[in-house]
Design a protein around this nucleic acid. Structure first.
Length: 550
RNA sequence: GGCCCGUUGGUCAAGCGGUUAAGACGCAGCCCUCUCAAGGCUGAAUCAUGGGUUCGAUUCCCGUACGGGUCACCA
């Protein structure tokens, strides 16, 4: 018996690896083109870190005229969920991330290097595992979980490094004949890689983000094919990224410690390893201390959170680019109106330590982005958001479409647009007094300096009877308010009042506040003139007259 | 615990042996202003720590502390 016969016994139907090498040839891409991939497991919603990684993958491929692949790592069937792939595809699409190659829906894929679901690549991994067995670089291991635990317990009590390596690797040098016998006998087994590494030797590797890394060699005989015939991450990563001709692997830095395994596997299989870029983890501030942002504890870890809040996806992407690349902010300042597609991401400008996620900063980024949107776009986006999360607002917007556009256009489209909306869930609060049905429900009038009911009514009455004319231009309108102020014993200008406060009851600002509050219930609103123009003559008159009657 | 990575204001960060240690968010104040969101200006606030190396260390080296990651038939 020799390795060849053992290999044939284990994987009788596996093809020669030359078949796959020919089937998936080197890509014909321009010099310097990056082939990247995002390779999540279909275990639920996309995590903010996954989004972060996929943005970088996509960007790198795009800016080098390369290819961005979406591959699904579904080799752990226990953790899979229903429609997991579709959730990932749709989740990415919401952020405008669409792969050039790979999965495009639950079951559909595009590209010539597939299949892109690992569970469908079983025979490929087995072919490579078989070739390793033939070369004596891999072997079947018959250890049960209990045996493995025993080994570990012994190692722990002896205070030596745990794992399946060296003398602890029970089946590493198991006679082939006996192995064959066990297999024929139906004993369960898995396939392990026969590592040639030594823990006391170090490898040096240059990471595209972290720079020079020095790690101990791998000496663990890691599992490459599990009992269910599917590969482990390590093996699948190496085989897939080679066969898909991936040039850059971008992944979280929790993978650094298994880099020696991957590098050894690439070497033994005779593959050229990709460039690795290990990204820092996004952290969360937890009462003053940092910790990894967590799916369980932190709602903002799930990208669905941003949709619920109504934060535009381009704001999230822009924020992430902000923490991803230190050259992004200066670029944005120099190019305030360019699309982020034009920004060139540099891996060596990536942060090496984990950034604490800053919601306030995100909202600031978002606020600036929204301020540049047209009222049409704000209307559309808010409606889209409201249809899912605020039915009342949805109705309001649908019923008054033209009017709503005017409302949203107040102080917009100018050099210094309004910046009071940072997420769609802010919209209702900011505009609701513009709608009769909402205004009528509001009874908390936030009067300020002038609080006396009679005084307020007197001012409003004079205004509506003697001054208000919807056809006035802004200057005339304001002059009339100044006239009214003077008439009631208030200063026409704030400055005049400040110089001689004892001469007046107040100033023009106090008067306009009375009108503003009566019309909107609020003392802080956008430009009153524009508000009155949008409300229209009748509504202004009605609101003021009704207020006087109260 | 072993191994790895990291540590510049509250947060994101620039910096690559000599700088008054950028900038952004946030905070405070002022200005503008009929209110507010903005915008403009000003301000408070940072090189974890101890040793080296050097004429000189935020920057280079070593230790310490702290934080993070990893040690599966999970990815």
């Amino acid at each position: 018996m020799d390795f060849n016969e053992l290999a044939d016994l284990i994987f009788p139907n596996a093809k020669e690896i030359s078949y796959y090498e020919e089937k998936y040839p080197e890509r014909n891409l321009p010099e310097g083109a990056a082939v990247t991939r995002f390779a999540p497991s279909p275990t639920g919603f996309i995590h903010i870190g996954g989004l972060f990684g996929s943005i970088i993958d996509r960007k790198l491929a795009e800016q080098s005229k390369g290819t961005f692949i979406l591959r699904i790592e579904d080799t752990d069937q226990k953790r899979e969920i229903e429609n997991g792939v579709a959730q990932i595809v749709d989740g990415l699409k919401a952020f405008d991330i669409v792969p050039n190659e790979g999965m495009i829906s639950e079951n559909d894929e595009i590209g010539n290097y597939g299949p892109y679901k690992q569970s469908q690549r079983k025979e490929i991994y087995q072919a490579y595992a078989k070739s390793l067995i033939k070369q004596g670089q891999a072997y079947p291991c018959f250890c049960t979980h209990e045996e493995l635990e025993e080994i570990r317990a012994k190692q722990e009590s002896a205070k030596i490094r745990p794992g399946y390596y060296g003398v602890w690797a029970k089946y590493r040098n198991f006679p082939i004949d006996e192995a064959v016998e066990k297999i024929k006998n139906g004993d369960p087994y898995i396939i392990r890689f026969k590592s040639q590494g030594r823990e006391d030797r170090r490898i040096k590797h240059k990471d595209s983000i972290k720079g020079n890394l020095e790690l101990p060699e791998n000496d663990q005989d890691i599992v490459i094919i599990k009992a269910d015939g599917l590969p482990t991450y390590h093996f699948a990563h190496v085989v897939d990224d080679h066969l898909m001709r991936v040039t850059h692997v971008i992944r979280g830095d929790e993978w650094i410690s298994s880099l020696p395994i991957h590098l050894e596997l690439f070497k033994v299989l005779g593959f050229k390893p990709p460039k690795y870029a290990h990204t820092a983890t996004i952290m969360k501030d937890d009462n003053g201390s940092k910790r990894k942002i967590s799916k369980r504890k932190d709602p903002e870890a799930a990208v669905s959170f941003y949709h619920e809040q109504g934060i535009p996806s381009d704001a999230v992407v822009e924020y992430l680019l902000n923490i991803a690349n230190s050259s992004f902010e200066p670029w944005r300042r120099a190019n305030p109106d360019k699309s982020i597609a034009e920004f060139e991401l540099q891996l060596n400008k990536m942060s090496v330590s984990g950034a604490v996620f800053d919601m306030i900063k995100l909202l600031d980024v978002s606020k600036n982005i929204i301020s540049k949107y047209s009222s049409q776009k704000i209307y559309d986006e808010t409606l889209k958001w409201a249809s899912k999360y605020d039915k009342e607002l949805e109705q309001l917007l649908i019923k008054n479409k033209e009017y709503s556009m005017k409302v949203l256009n107040i102080e917009r489209g100018k050099a210094k647009p309004r910046k009071d909306i940072s997420k769609w869930s802010d919209v209702k609060e900011t505009i609701k007094y513009m709608y009769e049905e909402e205004y009528n429900k509001m009874d908390d009038f936030e009067f300020q300096k002038i609080e006396d009911k009679e005084e307020i009514k007197d001012i409003l009455n004079s205004y509506i009877e003697n001054y208000f004319d919807i056809n006035d231009d802004k200057e005339t309108w304001f002059n009339k308010i100044k006239d009214l102020s003077e008439n009631k014993g208030y200063a026409r200008e704030v400055k005049e009042y400040k110089q001689e406060p004892e001469k007046y009851k107040g100033h023009v600002g106090d008067i306009s506040t009375v009108i503003r509050v009566a019309l909107t219930t609020k003392h802080n609103t956008p430009d009153l003139y524009e508000i009155m123009q949008v409300l229209g003559k009748e509504t202004v008159e009605n609101r003021i007259k009704n207020f006087i009657k109260r």
